[in-house]
């Protein structure tokens, strides 16, 4: 579904990603782990299409097409969803109104009829119920005055409504206490499906206790340095990222090597 080959990205003239290879298929959940500054969030932003990230080499194919030439909204309409690490607050723009505008933009793109407000409300109520989310966040402005936990749940709620093909969860666990983390993870697990791929970007293993990945990729200094199953995450948690830098990769079994 998504295939990244030899991706080099610079931000403000500084090389961040230095030859990253990655691929994921429908139905899978992959985790990308790595220390601070390794380029995890850059990868997410490049896939979502944020400005200021210059791809100097390599390619990103999504459903076999060149993703990089698409505008951010076209990517979204093609089914890419990014759950942001720091969801932006948009004062004055109503959350429900915004989400309906987004959903209808995507439906229109796909040639489906737009939902009127009654139909949309019905859909929203269903999703809220599944995710055990209180409906008061519908009446507020997008993310405005939300707590850290509320923002992350709002992201997952949007994901549930927009039903993406490929979802990227960027440090969705950051800033959450253990209860909020569990709620968010449960929401994500409910959205796992055979035709949906998910990339979970995280610094810590603890989220992966709740969202068990099919595959774990370790990103360091702009490259994937190790790949493995869920057990790789545990290994990292145990040893810490310094273990990686001190040659830990070499000590991993050949079956885990990239």
């Amino acid at each position: 579904m998504l295939e990244i080959k030899n991706l080099h990205v610079t931000v403000g003239g500084k090389a961040i990603l230095k030859g990253l290879d990655f691929s994921i298929e429908a139905g899978q959940v992959h985790a990308i782990m790595g220390p601070n500054g390794s380029g995890k969030s850059t990868l997410g932003n490049v896939i979502a299409g944020r400005e200021g990230y210059e791809v100097t080499q390599g390619e990103v194919l999504y459903k076999g097409k060149n993703l990089l030439e698409l505008a951010p909204e076209v990517r979204a309409c093609e089914g890419i969803f990014m759950a942001f690490q720091y969801p932006v607050e948009i004062p004055g723009v109503n959350n429900t109104y915004f989400l309906r505008a987004a959903l209808n933009a995507q439906r229109k793109y796909r040639g489906e009829p737009e939902l009127d407000s009654m139909e949309f409300l019905k859909l929203v109520r269903e999703k809220l119920k599944i995710l055990h989310i209180n409906d008061d966040l519908l009446h507020r402005a997008v993310n405005e005055g939300f707590s850290g936990g509320e923002k992350k749940r709002n992201e997952i709620f949007q994901m549930a409504v927009l039903e993406p093909v490929l979802a990227i969860l960027d440090e969705t666990d950051s800033g959450l206490d253990i209860d909020a983390l569990r709620l968010v993870a449960e929401g994500v697990n409910r959205l796992r499906s055979d035709d949906r791929a998910m990339i979970v970007i995280t610094h810590y293993q603890r989220l992966l206790d709740h969202i068990v990945p099919d595959k774990v990729h370790v990103l360091a200094d702009g490259k994937i340095v190790a790949r493995g199953g869920a057990e790789l995450a545990l290994k990292l948690e145990e040893q810490g990222y310094t273990w990686l830098e001190q040659g830990g990769i070499q000590s991993l079994g050949a079956e885990l090597r990239a």
Binding site: A48, G49, R50, E51, A71, P72, E73, R75, A76, C77, F81, M82, F84, P87, V88, I90, F98, L99, A101, A102, L103, A105, Q106, Y109, V142, Q158, L162
Partner: peptide, 8 residues
Amino acid sequence: FYMRSRGL
């Protein structure tokens, strides 16, 4: 950007 990433 946030809004565009949602498809608007």
